[in-house]
């Protein structure tokens, strides 16, 4: 979703909104209503943010978190895309897997964390399993929908031009379903992002953005917590707006399959 009007007035009002919010926070922090250890002024947060970046720990922690998310997403794609396709193409696969998918999908991945900790320990494996669990279902569901909704005419045209079964799949079905597949991966990223932060808070592996927050809580470092929150928000925003929107613009939007900038 883009900002509707890039006009000067909206920009000014938007900045005023953000400034007022920041000002309100600052006034609240300095009022002494809460102790400053709990609600640090912006200056303190900025200093914490700078320190986290300066000693390199932020980059390392963010790298660990991002690595887990991307690996989990990759696993989810490797499972979800073939499974979703098979479900859409073969009746027996659909009948077998759909009930399982619809029962497992509404279970929040984070509910599994304590059990996974017992099974896989408090390391990267648990994190990656949780992230994959969270990310697989939206991909399966969207690929399944996408493959079923590939335009019939394209399939018939390709068949009429003598495409073999495998060519039909690789050159028509997969690309026809691409808008759905991209939507699925996008949704999955959102879920995976929540799962990884929650998983890191609960399982506290050695490195990770969730770990920073968890540690900071022990020492009442709320400025560090807020700095980490800021980084989490910015990373999420960058992926959602920049990476996925760019992928969409370069592929399906360019090929005229969806209107660009939509959604």
């Amino acid at each position: 979703m883009k900002l509707r009007s890039p006009s000067w007035v909206s920009f000014r009002r938007g900045s005023i909104g953000v400034l007022v919010a920041l000002g309100a926070w600052e006034a609240f922090a300095r009022s002494g209503l809460f102790s400053q250890a709990l609600s640090p002024p912006i200056e303190t947060i900025a200093v914490s943010l700078y320190q986290l970046f300066a000693d390199g720990s932020m980059v390392r922690n963010a790298g660990a978190t991002l690595g887990r998310v991307l690996l989990g997403l990759l696993i989810a794609c490797l499972i979800g895309i073939p499974l979703g396709t098979a479900m859409a193409r073969y009746r027996a696969w659909e009948r077998f897997w759909l009930p399982l998918v619809s029962v497992l999908m509404p279970i929040p991945s984070l509910a599994w964390v304590p059990l996974f900790i017992l099974w896989f320990g408090i390391g990267d494996i648990t994190m990656i399993v949780v992230v994959s669990y969270a990310a697989t279902f939206p991909i399966v569901y969207n690929v399944w929908t996408g493959v079923r909704s590939v335009n019939r005419i394209w399939l018939r045209a390709a068949t009429a031009m003598g495409a073999s079964e495998s060519a039909l799949f690789w050159k028509v079905v997969l690309f026809g379903a691409l808008p759905y597949i991209i939507t699925g991966i996008r949704l999955s990223f959102g879920r995976a992002w929540i799962a990884v932060i929650g998983g890191e808070l609960l399982a506290s592996p050695t490195w990770g953005l969730g770990r920073i927050i968890f540690d900071a809580k022990e020492f009442l470092n709320s400025s560090v917590m807020l700095a980490a929150l800021l980084v989490i928000g910015v990373l999420g925003l960058v992926f959602e707006r920049v990476v996925f929107q760019e992928i969409e613009r370069r592929t399906v939007a360019r090929w005229g399959m969806v209107a660009s900038g939509k959604q």
């Binding site: 979703m1 900002l3 909104g17 953000v18 919010a21 984070l110 959102g190 992002w193 929540i194 932060i197 929650g198 808070l201 953005l209 969730g210 927050i213 968890f214 900071a216 809580k217 709320s222 917590m225 807020l226 980490a228 929150l229 989490i232 928000g233 999420g236 925003l237 959602e240």
Partner: peptide
């Protein structure tokens, strides 16, 4: 404000 807040997983606020 809403666009900035939206992508932060709510869970991250929990310890705070």
């Amino acid at each position: 404000i809403v666009s900035i807040g939206y992508p932060i997983p709510g869970l991250a606020y929990a310890p705070l």
